[in-house]
Amino acid sequence: MITPFQVACKNLLRKKVRTLLTLVGIMLSTWVLVSLFGFNRGYEKALNRDIENMGYQLMVMAKGCPYEAATMMLQGGTGLRYMEQSMVNDIMEEAEVDKITPILMQAFFDPNKGESGGIAGYFGVDPDSYPAMKPFFRFRSGGWFRDNSAAEVVMGYEAAELEQREVGDMTLVPEKNVQLKVVGILERTGTQDDGTIFVPLKTLQRIAEIDKITTIGIKVKKDADITKLENKLYQLKDVQVVSFSQVKQTIMKLISTARVMVLSIAIVAILIAMAGVVNTVLMSVLERMPEIGILKTMGAMPGDIFRLVWTETLILCGIGGVAGIGFALLFARGTDLLVRRILPYAPSGGLVVIDGGLALLTLGSIVAAGLLSGLYPAWKAGRVRPLESIRRDG
């Protein structure tokens, strides 16, 4: 006995080129839609991961240009303004503060970087407090400094690769003619830490001939009110506060604008694909009017004809949707690289995350939209009058 599914498949195969073009349209629409959903999920996860990898939720620095603060935060740049170290004790007294670490950022001109030289950046950190802020750090070799004033450095993965240094080598601080021993090289993290050279805080202060700091990293207690702590910190003299939660919200607002534009394009693509579905199924119905009339004279009910035509729509959307999701998964890496070209300052890690739940959601959306688009052709097929359709054929 031939099933409605088999009949629907045979009907679609009658016009192979038209059916194939419709499938391609549905596939491309599904590809765009699932990639957009994957980007929506992946970007936020990557941004959250990068913020968590900072090890602290707040940064306090000397009051100055906010663009300098953004540079320090996002690019590991060097600030030009300093704070007294006593500020660390003042902040540590706040009830919302869990951990705190002072940082001194310094830059020295390095004539060996590029044809005209460049800037070598150093982070002076406290070996007692800073590692606790970065629990995800893993060493490729070696470890942290012995103490806060040791003549030693820990190099990020890319910094060590660039300077071709191994544990036990000596490295020269440009401009100052000071040699430091490499005691640790970090594994790759995918963040700005990879290009950073870490020095004990007191050692860098001695080299730079300054007893101040540029930044204070603050890790807030789990259930503490970050906004309340920010308001307290704003009361401190001559400082500015950078909250990574605020930065995240600002970035996500910017991304939301781009997301709306891309979503609009995806909706247009889906509408075009659904128009193709309507065209394919409706043309199939019109071409088979006499056959439908004969089926009705043999006892087929309007509901039977409706289900038969709707089955064709379901097959088109199902195959096209599955193919689109398959291509999205297959070329997810390429999509990720394309997004990074468009958004060069995107967070590290995968930006397009597609899992089983997301794939099923997209497939369900495509099939639902397709079945809606197939209502009219199926309704029209169900209303065919047997005698009129047979007489028209004759």
Rank of each mutant, 00 (worst) to 15 (best):
M1Y: 13
N11H: 01
R14H: 14
L21E: 11
L36T: 15
G38C: 04
E44G: 11
E44S: 14
A46E: 15
R49Y: 11
M54V: 08
P66V: 03
A70D: 13
L74Q: 12
G77R: 06
Y82Q: 13
M83V: 13
Q85D: 05
M87Y: 09
P102E: 02
Q106F: 08
F108S: 15
F109S: 14
D110R: 11
G121K: 12
G121Y: 13
Y122P: 12
P131T: 02
M133N: 00
P135I: 00
S141M: 14
A150S: 09
V154N: 01
Y157P: 09
E166M: 12
V178C: 11
K181Q: 11
G184V: 03
G190I: 01
Q192D: 15
P200E: 06
R206S: 09
A208V: 12
V220C: 01
K222S: 04
D223Y: 06
D223A: 05
D225Y: 04
E230L: 09
L233A: 07
Q240L: 02
F244A: 07
Q249G: 14
T250H: 04
A266W: 03
A269G: 02
I270T: 09
L271A: 12
T280G: 06
K296E: 15
D304R: 09
L314D: 01
G320L: 03
L330E: 13
D336C: 04
G356H: 06
L372D: 05
K380Q: 14
R383M: 11
R383E: 10
